[in-house]
Simulated scan of single mutants.
Amino acid sequence: MRNIKAIHKTVYSPVDDLETFRAIPTQSINYLDPFLFLNHHGPQFYVKNNNGLPFGPHPHRGFETLTYVLKGDIAHQDSTGGESVIKEGGIQWMTAGSGLIHSEVSSQEFMQNGGKVEVIQLWLNLAAKNKMVEPNYRGLTFEDICHFDLDGGKVNVDLISGNWDKHKGPIDSLSNLTMASIRLKADARLSLEVDEKNEILFYLAYGELVVNATEIQKHQLVQFENKGSEISIKANSDSYLIFGYGKPFNEPMVAQGPFVMNSQEEIMAAYADFRSGKMGKWR
């Protein structure tokens, strides 16, 4: 068994009028190399003629973002020309790399009609050798993602990147990350094997699980020891799990505002490049 090292509760950290629960970073955990940041927005209901999500144009450099759209939609636009509207069940994977400006707002349709919003966003670090790669964006619908069932259909896996038995996710991660969401029905059972060289991201968005004989509630992040490989899961209720793993970089990490680099000098260079327009112009 891979023993549980700690269980971290989210902190309530609203963004404007958007209800937000932050799992990483908090006072109890700074980051899980290479997983830097996890915000769980909603679920929240927006009335008709609303202002939508509050993530207008802003820059990024030095990492990737993975956004799960559980409810509602996200309209993405960036300074490299990337553009899409992703609805419920889809994801967005953006490689900020050397830098770009992007926005993540609600579609005009959603702002006009209203509805429920729920979004989970991760920041995934890049190794020093990949910090300055060319920016890239992909928006995937639910149908674009690799799906398969386990435990007689009680477990539904949405595989985004990496390999899982004979299955392969549609995203080729620069950091060789395996990323998925897992939907478990009540009484479902799942056994996972993760090599101890890998760091694990394990966030329960909702539901209740028993993980290696320990009860886990919604809005909890499970941190595992780096010994052993087996994780045994039983669902006490319908649950939704964000699950991923990858090898730590074990490199210096400096995060400031929208940039994540390996030194303070590189952070200052990022701000200078942004101000001079090297990350693109906003249309």
Rank of each mutant, 00 (worst) to 15 (best):
S84E: 06
L66V: 15
I24V: 07
R22E: 10
I200N: 07
A269E: 15
V254M: 14
D238E: 14
P170D: 11
V85P: 00
V15K: 03
G72A: 03
N30Q: 15
N236Q: 14
E251T: 05
G99D: 14
R283S: 00
I242M: 12
K278E: 08
E208K: 07
S161Y: 06
K131T: 04
I86M: 12
Q92Y: 05
V194N: 03
D273A: 11
D17M: 08
N236W: 06
P258C: 05
L18M: 14
Q220H: 13
Y245Q: 11
G153H: 05
A128T: 11
R275H: 13
G90L: 11
T141S: 15
N3E: 12
S232Y: 08
R275W: 04
K129N: 13
G114E: 11
T95K: 07
K234S: 12
Y137L: 00
K281F: 06
P252A: 14
T178N: 03
S106N: 11
N236L: 12
G81K: 03
D78Y: 04
D187A: 08
G139R: 08
H8P: 01
G72C: 12
F35D: 01
I231G: 10
D149Y: 01
D78L: 01
E19C: 00
V117S: 08
S13Q: 13
G90D: 14
Q217M: 05
T10A: 12
F148M: 09
H219K: 14
G56A: 05
H219R: 15
T178K: 14
F63V: 07
E64G: 02
T80W: 00
Y12A: 04
V105G: 09
Q112P: 06
I7N: 03
K116N: 13
N50A: 09
L124Y: 07
R22M: 06
